[in-house]
Nucleic acid binder design. Sequence first.
DNA 1: GAAAAAGTGTAATAATTATGACATTTATAA
DNA 2: TTATAAATGTCATAATTATTACACTTTTTC
Lengths: 228, 228
Amino acid sequence: MNGEYPYLKHARMIFQCPLCNKVPEDQREDFIKDVRFTVREYDKGDIIVTQGSLSETLFIVIKGEVSTEMSDEKGDFMQIEYIKAPNPIATGFLFAADNRSPVSATCQSSCKVIAIPKDNVYLLMRKYESFMHTFLSYISNKVFFLSEKLRLVSLRTIRAKLAYYLLKESEGQKIFQLKTSREDMARLFSVSRPALVKVMMEMAEEGVIDVERRNICINDRAALQNMF
Amino acid sequence: MNGEYPYLKHARMIFQCPLCNKVPEDQREDFIKDVRFTVREYDKGDIIVTQGSLSETLFIVIKGEVSTEMSDEKGDFMQIEYIKAPNPIATGFLFAADNRSPVSATCQSSCKVIAIPKDNVYLLMRKYESFMHTFLSYISNKVFFLSEKLRLVSLRTIRAKLAYYLLKESEGQKIFQLKTSREDMARLFSVSRPALVKVMMEMAEEGVIDVERRNICINDRAALQNMF
DNA sequence: GAAAAAGTGTAATAATTATGACATTTATAA
DNA sequence: TTATAAATGTCATAATTATTACACTTTTTC
């Protein structure tokens, strides 16, 4: 009885997690009794999930930043997702038939992560509707995200990819800032950096866009739309 | 009372659906009372879901074949998935935040499709554990599937893609048959057909594989693995 | 504030791929 | 069966992209 109070205080951290923070106040006491979780701390560079390992646990980042990537046999890797707290990691794979994780998750800064066992997730979903809704929405968004990325990578030329990407990133604005470096854009496109820069500068020369490092101005939106 | 029996008979079709066929016998009478669905019939070429339309309904193919694809503004399209009965369509997008469907679904033969409204799916998931498990597993597999495809498309060269693809398709066998035409393979890889064939023949000349139309024999598995 | 690291633009050359033919074989339909 | 369509392999040429440098700027770190 004596040791229970510090635990319960600690346990309330679970509601920082975006899968749980929609649980209504009046259900939270019950929820805390039902949930089974641990909090883990990692340093920058630590690996949370290894590609190929069994995924029997739901991980939710509540502090720091994590990137997930798939690596091939040569050690090259492709970034799949960049996860900032508070968000779950690799939600989509937890219940897959082949439940080895196809991605690795690496800490980009010091991180705090909540870990919930898979069977406990089932229980929580059945008992707490809000949890189920949020969880489903997360997986679905993952599917959407992957589909969008697939569409981008499937475009044939760098010009097409860049046009598509710029229109997405602009979010309808004429002037905006790119969130990633040329290097990362090239990796996202699966092309080389010099080739990407070259195409970008060509588009600038044509007057379709203005480029100054990460600052972009779209002069001719229609032209971009015709490029893919 | 008189009209109820034909309905119930019709209703039992729902258990042909792979999301529902794990519901235990002793729960099926209850399940039929809770489920709300319609059966729709389509001809070859008919469109079940249009890209961009709201996805408020879960569709499950119980007869025929359906392909889902994403099209760009020029009318070119990329096939995402080929769904044979009995399987659900675009499971992943139903609960996404932006719930417009990013894919179109087109009938490849005459089809029979079960349609269940989204809110009814929520209800069924909470009440029937088997349904929830199956549904989650389906979405998760979708994520897995997309990730694999993304990995394939993200490989830089045709040679790398082909090596990766052949190893996957071979399923460990030395001799096997390709399931798709060169045309479709090229589309899957996002490359041109002549370029794909050229690389394939180069690999055959090197002795790594034998090719005779769709019949493939892998002579040097290690060499393939080193190509990506 | 200086040094180191990361990010950015450029160029020449080599390699890869697309395009748009065409011939040949295999499946399909009339 | 024949005619038609679909699938496959090939080629020359043009276009695109990768590679490997290097110079320069900005940001980060100590």
